[in-house]
Design a protein around this nucleic acid. Structure first.
Length: 977
RNA sequence: GCUCGAGUGGUGGAAUUGGUAGACACGUUGGACUUAAAAUCCAAUGGACAUUAGUCCGUGCGGGUUCAAGUCCCGCCUCGAGUACCA
């Protein structure tokens, strides 16, 4: 019997589905274990081999934990709201829900073929109303909460209202907007209902605020920084302007410190923690108030170096700073306005990218030094960002390189306030070595003491205070898109009102067009049935809006990260219609034990999810402040792209064609073209070739020797311009009748459809089977490292599976042949060293090395001609997390009626590995010269004696007396001298 | 620039605490089986020198510590990822 993997894999995939083998129970006496994958966005391109890498690893771990007796939760779902489906809808009119459904079905088919042990009864889709009902519900919870800094947690808004009614807002220690006006209890009571709502919005954890966005009028949408290139939209090249828009924001900044502190609670990769730490960007310092000479206004600055306050020789404001227009003198007005106009044209990205050019303008105004009362010139410069801190800095050129460069460029004095430091070449920023001088009461103090003292003095003057600043800013939560969660929000007199939870979900309305409206409203502005009737508690036609009982609904939708910020909790009880999840479910499952996914989500998904988790923890909805104990980043799989090099040759105005030039000929392309012209006379006057270029060729047209299949390439409609192209081969001559070959250029790039280098797992499943694919993806290398995809090695793991199959089969017909023979000592040794290694490997997520271990085990057992059930049965269990189909088949052939998945993992017993002798490497001055077999239980002295009396030792020494003999029992002997 | 990660044969990689560098595969070469191919099996395979025995070199580069360094320390180089003037 041969190894018929197609039949076997189909059989067991069907068996698992029919028997719901991987269904996890919410009530179990077993210990729980939750293994989670980052759920995919179902794109139209389907899965490529990079996707399953992490899924295979987590599946191995999940199956392993089942063997270890755990009740394992291993779910999968889809992050199914997103831009590509919407873009496709805009182009084709096809409803995104249909595209999404099609894509999900394709994903499911592909995932099923790989044999994952997902509990599909728990599948979630973020775009499904039964799911986003709870996304909307959480939004409402956030709206109805504020952050109390005294208790350091989120509380219900009612507790805030109670305080306002009793004593106004002066004693409230809350995270809120910067510019909240003070009011008393009497004031509060005198406010209109609308005024009260306006005040509360300044405290809510999700709130409406004016946010500056990159607005692209032509596309009618807001663009992310990286969708803008050189100030125009990446797609279409339309102008982009900075515009203020009222949008929902999430007060994630309230959680900045806890998000930072609790990183110590989780076992996540250090680089990932580092990038979250940097993103949160905590800095300690002081806020200092500078008076503006001769005016009412003051300038607040944040500084991490208040100790250098006597080194201030100018101040710099961001060009966007609101005071700029007020304080600029009439003489400087023209220059300042010109400068502001020039910087406004540059995107934030551009401004940041250009570090070398120093620009700025003097406002003509002066500030007053808080202590010396000296005048300080006020400048504006685009190295100061409006969005960070207060948008203004006190510039200390002797202590900060950017300030130093600015001062040098504009000839501003650079006073030195450091004792014994030369600042003629560059600024001095070493806090540890700082001793302050020329600074009045700070003279002679080191950094820390000076900071303390200066804050004390500033507080006395009421011109400053110690402050901790975070880079992390509140997250904008509105998107001007169609394919996202609608907000459960309607507007009464311009104030947002939440729809009551029992009326959720508010389902996405139908629209004619998925584009923004002509008046620039988001796509939901096209909906005709999109108004809220408070009497009927239902969505009704817009024409009924009367602002009495029928009100307009919110037109924005939620961002992609909304649905993905709590899905891991919803999996615990995904079909619950009454609650986001039952208390029983969350109490049993608690949190994720192992989360595997890409590192690109370090500061997006993984930060927002932690934020929502903490919020829900504060509200008593979840029992843990962190949602995932351990996280592993799987490495990226890179593909080898192929490039065809070509020139476009023109003979006359409208007569041109392509000349593709092979890789080594490309290096001397001019010479090659010249030679070609000598043999193909052309009109010298008209002829020119100008465009030297290269284009991605689909990798399937290139063989392993990098030779291009020219016919296929020519005939691919995607490359119609090469239909009649001339191909010049390696030798620099035109290719005809296979006289030469065309060699493509190769480059390793991220695997991506746009680079034509993707490899789908489907072909490999078809040709070699899912078990081969699973083993091979693991065999490629360490899970966390990025690695190139190359199918060349797949035959290795495939023939391993065949060898393993043969181990269980013998006799004339190759029938199943496993005996009850007593295992030999060698058999047991092979088995137990395999158990030990595989168990260690899985615990260390070192899946690549266990594949080698299996190969060694099967090679050894084959050589030992082992057919003993006592060996082969445990071996089958060891292999089963990696290659589950073949394992199930062999398991059933071994006589088991039930699935292998619950079989207990074999126990390692050290006694089988005890060796009676050890082959010692004998080295001289660190170089191994020969090996010596010695009994394992010899003492150091006995080993030394045995080695020194050996002939070969004497031969090596040639009469010399060794200076020293190092004996490490069980390891090595080294003779020095 | 900063932060993090990596650099080992023709290729993917192994060496878990400093102790026999190159496990396990792929590829290549030779052989067996076959009319042939596929499949399978066997052997060789880091480089140089050498008939053999063996010798020398060798984990990005330069130093160092050690009886012993891919592994530890110092200084560099290259590649990859992330980040963006954060006051």
């Amino acid at each position: 019997m041969t190894y018929d993997f197609r039949k076997i894999e189909e059989k067991w995939q069907k068996f698992w589905a029919e028997n719901q083998t991987f269904k996890a129970e919410n009530n179990s006496q077993k210990e729980k274990f939750y293994v989670l994958d980052m759920f995919p966005y179902p794109s139209g391109a389907g899965l490529h081999v990079g996707h399953p890498l992490g899924y295979i690893a987590s599946d191995i771990y999940a199956r392993y934990k089942r063997h270890k007796g755990f009740n394992v939760l291993h779910p999968m779902g889809y992050d199914s709201f997103g831009l590509p489906a919407e873009q496709y809808a805009i182009q084709t009119g096809q409803h995104p829900a249909i595209t999404t459904e099609t894509n999900i079905n394709r994903y499911r088919e592909q995932l099923d073929k790989i044999g994952f042990s997902f509990d599909w009864s728990r599948e979630v889709r973020t775009s499904d109303p039964s799911y986003y009902k709870w996304t909307q519900w959480i939004f409402i919870q956030l709206f109805n909460s504020w952050y109390n800094k005294d208790t350091d947690k989120a509380e219900d808004i009612s507790s805030l209202i109670a305080i306002f009614e009793k004593e106004g807002n002066q004693s409230v220690n809350a995270v809120c907007d910067e510019d909240v006006a003070a009011f008393s209890a009497a004031d509060w009571k005198a406010f209109t209902a609308k005024e009260q709502q306006e005040v509360l919005l300044q405290y809510r954890l999700t709130y409406l605020a004016e946010t500056e966005v990159n607005w692209c009028p032509a596309l009618g949408t807001v663009l992310a920084n990286d969708e803008i290139v050189n100030g125009v939209s990446e797609r279409g090249g339309h102008p982009v302007i900075r515009k203020k828009m009222t949008q929902w924001s999430m007060r994630i900044s309230a959680y900045a410190q806890r998000l930072l502190d609790d990183l110590t609670m989780v076992d996540w990769p250090q680089p990932l923690k580092d990038s979250q730490t940097n993103w949160i960007g905590r800095s300690e310092g002081a806020e200092v108030t500078f008076r503006v000479k001769g005016r009412e206004e003051v300038i607040d600055v944040f500084t991490t170096r208040p100790d250098t306050i006597f080194g201030v020789s100018f101040m710099t404001l961001a060009p966007e700073h609101e005071l700029v227009a007020k304080i600029t003198t009439s003489e400087q007005k023209e220059e300042v306005e010109a400068y502001i106009a020039a910087t406004a044209k540059r995107s934030e990205r551009d401004r940041m990218a250009d570090v070398k050019t120093i620009t700025g303008a003097f406002t003509g105004a002066f500030a007053e030094h808080p202590f010396s009362k000296e005048p300080i010139p006020i400048w504006i410069g685009d190295y100061v960002l409006a969005g960070y801190g207060t948008g203004a800095v006190m510039s200390v050129p002797c202590g900060d390189q950017r300030d130093y460069d600015f001062a040098k460029h504009f000839n501003i004095p650079i006073p030195n306030i450091f004792d014994g430091v030369d600042i003629s070449e560059e600024a001095f920023a070493d806090k540890e070595k700082t001793v302050i001088a020329n600074s009045d009461f700070l003279n002679g103090l080191p950094y820390k003491k000076a900071v303390k003292r200066v804050i004390f003095e500033l507080e006395k003057l009421e011109q400053g205070t110690g402050k901790i600043n975070y880079r992390l800013r509140d997250a904008v939560f509105s998107r001007q898109r169609y394919w996202g969660e609608p907000f459960p929000v309607y507007y009464v007199d311009g104030m947002p009102q939440m729809i009551r939870a029992e009326h959720l979900p508010i389902v996405l309305p139908e629209v004619e067009k998925y584009l923004p409206t002509e008046t620039g409203e988001p796509p939901l502005g096209n909906a005709t049935v999109w108004a809220w009737d408070v009497k009927k508690s239902t969505v009704v036609n817009n024409q009924l809006i009367d602002h009495k009982t029928v009100f307009p609904l919110e037109l924005n939708t939620m961002p992609g990260w909304a649905g993905s910020s709590y899905y891991f909790n919803r999996y615990m009880d995904p079909n619950n219609k009454e609650e986001v999840f039952s208390q029983e479910a969350i109490t049993y499952w608690q949190d994720v034990d192992l989360y595997i996914g890409g590192s690109e989500h370090a500061t997006g998904h993984l930060l927002y999810s932690r934020f929502w988790q903490k919020f829900m923890f504060d509200k008593g909805i979840v029992p843990k402040p962190e949602f995932a104990k351990k996280l592993i980043n799987q490495g990226m799989i890179t593909g080898t792209s192929a490039f065809v090099y070509f020139v476009v040759a023109r003979f006359a105005k409208d007569k041109q064609f392509y000349i593709a030039v092979s890789k080594s000929a490309w290096g001397r392309v001019d010479e090659v073209i010249k030679n070609w012209r000598n043999t193909h006379p052309v009109n010298e006057k008209a002829f020119r070739y100008s465009i030297l270029n290269r284009i991605h060729s689909p990798v399937e047209y290139v063989n392993s020797s990098d030779e291009l299949d020219i016919e296929s390439f020519r005939n691919d409609p995607m490359y119609s311009e090469f239909k009649d192209a001339i191909f010049i081969g390696e030798k620099g001559e035109v290719i005809k009748d296979n006289n030469d070959t065309y060699i493509v250029g190769r480059e390793v790039e991220k695997m991506s459809k746009s680079k034509y280098n993707v490899v789908s797992p489907d072909n490999i499943c078809q040709e070699y089977g899912a078990d081969s694919l699973r083993l091979y993806e693991m065999f490629l290398g360490p899970l966390e490292q990025s690695k190139p995809w190359n199918t060349a090695g797949i035959t290795g793991v495939h023939s391993f599976l065949k060898k393993m199959w043969r181990l269980f089969h013998g006799g004339d017909e190759g029938a199943f042949l496993v005996t009850d023979a007593e295992p030999t000592a060698d058999n047991l040794k092979t088995l137990h060293k395999t158990i030990k290694k595989v168990e260690e490997d899985i615990e260390n997520f070192s899946f690549n090395t266990s594949v080698s271990t299996f190969m060694i085990a099967v090679n050894e057992l084959s050589a030992q001609k082992c057919s003993s059930k006592a060996i082969l049965e445990p071996l089958t269990i060891l292999v089963s997390p990696y290659a589950p189909h073949i394992a199930e088949e062999l398991w059933s052939k071994l006589g088991h009626a039930t699935s292998i998945v619950a079989a207990p993992f074999p126990k390692f017993e050290g006694k089988y590995l005890v060796e009676s002798s050890k082959e010692y490497p004998i080295s001289f001055n660190g170089k191994v010269r020969f090996k010596l077999e010695l009994p394992a239980d010899l003492s150091k002295e006995e080993i030394e004696a045995a080695v020194m009396t050996h002939d070969k030792t004497q031969e090596q020494l040639q009469g010399r007396t060794p200076k020293k003999v190092i004996v490490v029992p069980g390891k090595i002997v080294n003779i020095v001298g």
